[in-house]
């Protein structure tokens, strides 16, 4: 067993893909670094914090991207975003069996301001174009820094999200909420609160994560492989159904003040015990209880 949470972006790709199958596009030797960070006198990374390329997953041809949270929290700058968008455009040209996004990002890289914001919006449009072409885009979220901000939106624009309990998914991250709304609204240092609000178990219960796996690279690999079978459905009927589901979810849970309230309404017995269960025990406990 090899921890996905602890690994680097490159380490995750090594464990995820068939051995030796990764062909990196714009590798570090190309030195395609951020033009903005140098102006700000800030160290750059040779790959701008993201690995993109082609590889094989159990023989299936996939395009992959892996964000490195250790570099500026995986934040999306101009080059970083352009590598993601370029990967999506390549998917339209080469029609792989799927695109895998190993997300780990706090969102837009604020150092790069509008260039970062534009980059993220380009990624969003590119993801939808790939899905519209019938190629599934699958998100893997189990890294140290979670997936927030613009990348949180990108993740939910994709076909499916695979999470571990350790993964986090949201729009405003816990620190951002505390800073803007106050510690009474959200205490970002309360780790139990953070994980039961944005963590993998809650996202799985709400239906935002399609699959919940153990913190193990091999488990992520198996889940991604299973989801490659799924064909994107961007029809009006499918979007209407999604909107209706989100509306009824808000109606059902809109007055809840804590994830525990939602779990209780879902009919989970002893909801306060969910955070301490291991993944297998959790999945057995919440069978047929997801929103």
């Amino acid at each position: 067993m090899s921890s996905y949470y602890e690994d680097s972006a490159r380490g995750r790709l090594d464990g995820l893909l068939d051995p030796g199958s990764l062909i990196e596009i714009l590798p570090p030797t190309e030195r395609m670094v951020s033009p903005h960070l140098r102006q700000l006198d800030t160290p750059a990374a040779f790959d701008d914090g993201i690995v993109v390329g082609e590889g094989r997953l159990d023989g299936r041809r996939v395009l992959v991207a892996a964000q490195e949270g250790g570099f500026m929290g995986g934040a999306v700058g101009e080059v970083h975003g352009a590598k993601l968008t370029g990967l999506m455009e390549r998917a339209l040209d080469t029609r792989p069996d799927g695109v895998l996004l190993l997300v780990e990002s706090g969102g837009v890289r604020l150092h790069e301001a509008n260039a970062g914001l534009i980059a993220v919006s380009e990624v969003m449009r590119a993801v939808l174009a790939v899905r519209a072409a019938g190629i599934p885009v699958i998100v893997l979220d189990g890294g140290t820094f979670g997936c927030f901000g613009g990348m949180g939106i990108v993740a939910r624009l994709c076909d499916a999200v695979v999470m571990s309990e350790e993964g986090r998914l949201g729009l405003s991250g816990p620190e951002v909420i505390e800073t803007t709304m106050g510690v009474e609204e959200f205490d970002s240092r309360d780790r139990a609160l953070v994980w039961r609000t944005v963590g993998g178990k809650h996202r799985y219960l709400l239906g935002e994560a399609a699959t919940l796996v153990e913190d193990d690279v091999a488990a992520f690999r198996a889940a991604a492989l299973a989801l490659l079978e799924q064909t994107p459905d961007l029809s009006l009927a499918a979007l209407d159904a999604e909107h209706a589901a989100l509306g009824s979810r808000l109606e059902r849970f809109g007055d809840c003040r804590d994830a525990l309230d939602i779990w209780e309404k879902l009919g989970v017995e002893e909801p306060e015990k969910l955070p301490i269960l291991d993944t297998a025990g959790f999945l057995a406990t919440v069978r047929d209880r997801r929103a």
């Binding site: 990374a45 490195e68 250790g70």
Partner: peptide, 18 residues
């Protein structure tokens, strides 16, 4: 062709050897 280790994060460094 090349070797890359480490990450550009606080208290850390990346080393590219070619």
């Amino acid at each position: 062709p090349s070797v890359l280790v480490g990450v550009v994060g606080s208290g850390n460094l990346e080393v590219l050897v070619e």
